[in-house]
Simulated assay, not measured.
Amino acid sequence: MPSRVVVFDYGSGNLRSAQRAMERTGADVTVTSDPHAALDADGLVVPGVGAFSACMASLRAAGGDRIIGRRVAGGRPVLGICVGMQVLFERGIEQADVQAEDRATEGCGEWPGTVERLHAPVVPHMGWNTVAPPEGSRLFSGVDPEERFYFVHSYAVRHWDFTSGSERIRSPRVTWSEHGEPFVAAVENGPLSATQFHPEKSGDAGARVLANWVATL
């Protein structure tokens, strides 16, 4: 039987694009805000576009932060995409305007780290870029190192300091990209995976990443 995947509808994200891309992997895909379906699915996809604070507010209102936490605690796979990846970190810092202080918003806290504005000559980072996955990555298995993925973002995690600290627990696998400076492009951490780029808009390379994720369900 095909894996059952829920694309979580909390009012943010390219829901239909994600649905169509996941369906092409052979998964049985549902777009819904129903918490029971989101908890029971073999895999949960959390998309996201726009501002960190707005996405986090919508996610909390729909109970998505609790759903993600329960799934991860139970070893049930979750895939975050774009801002759906960013909200998995401890917090996001957004620039309100040049005369106001930056605003900090608490995230889901599944990973330590801060989502910050990229330091680059041109922001947003919009277009195709290569990534550098670590050895042993399952998401990027079979993906040519020269393949490019589609990014649309102004903010990212610029520093990664988290290791497991235990010989028995594997540290997360972190994929990097660069736009003015290095930033986290993807993370694989047990049942929790995420990409800063949009795999659903990244052609054959993105399709392979999604198929690799579905294969782990």
Score class of each variant (00 low, 15 high):
A18I: 13
M22L: 15
G26M: 11
A18Y: 01
A38L: 04
A37S: 12
G11F: 13
A27E: 06
R16I: 08
S12W: 04
D34A: 06
P35S: 04
V31M: 08
A41K: 02
L39F: 00
A41W: 07
T25D: 10
D40M: 09
R16E: 08
Y10N: 00
E23D: 06
A21C: 03
S12L: 07
G13C: 07
A21G: 04
R20T: 10
R24E: 10
V31H: 07
S12Q: 13
T32C: 03
A37C: 01
D40P: 01
S17K: 01
R24M: 09
R24V: 03
V29L: 13
L39G: 05
M22Y: 10
A18P: 00
N14T: 07
M22F: 15
M22Q: 06
Q19H: 06
S12R: 09
D40R: 12
N14D: 03
L39M: 14
A18R: 00
S33Q: 09
A41P: 02
E23N: 04
D34Q: 06
A41C: 15
N14F: 12
V29G: 06
T32F: 13
R16P: 00
T25Q: 11
D40K: 05
T30V: 15
L39D: 11
G11Q: 12
L39Q: 06
V29I: 10
T32Y: 13
A27H: 09
A38D: 03
R16A: 12
M22V: 04
S12G: 00
P35F: 11
A41H: 02
Q19P: 00
D34M: 11
G26A: 07
L15Y: 08
P35K: 09
D28N: 14
D40I: 02
R16Q: 14
V29E: 08
Q19F: 02
L15H: 04
R16W: 05
T32K: 06
S17G: 13
N14H: 07
R16T: 10
M22T: 03
R24A: 14
V31D: 11
S33H: 11
R16D: 03
S17Q: 01
D28S: 14
G26Y: 12
A37K: 11
V29N: 06
G11P: 03
Q19G: 01
A38Q: 06
P35L: 09
A38K: 01
E23R: 13
A38N: 02
S12K: 01
N14E: 04
G11K: 05
P35D: 04
G26I: 10
Q19E: 15
S17I: 01
E23V: 09
A37F: 02
E23T: 00
G13N: 04
R20A: 07
A21N: 09
A38R: 02
D28M: 05
D40W: 01
D34F: 12
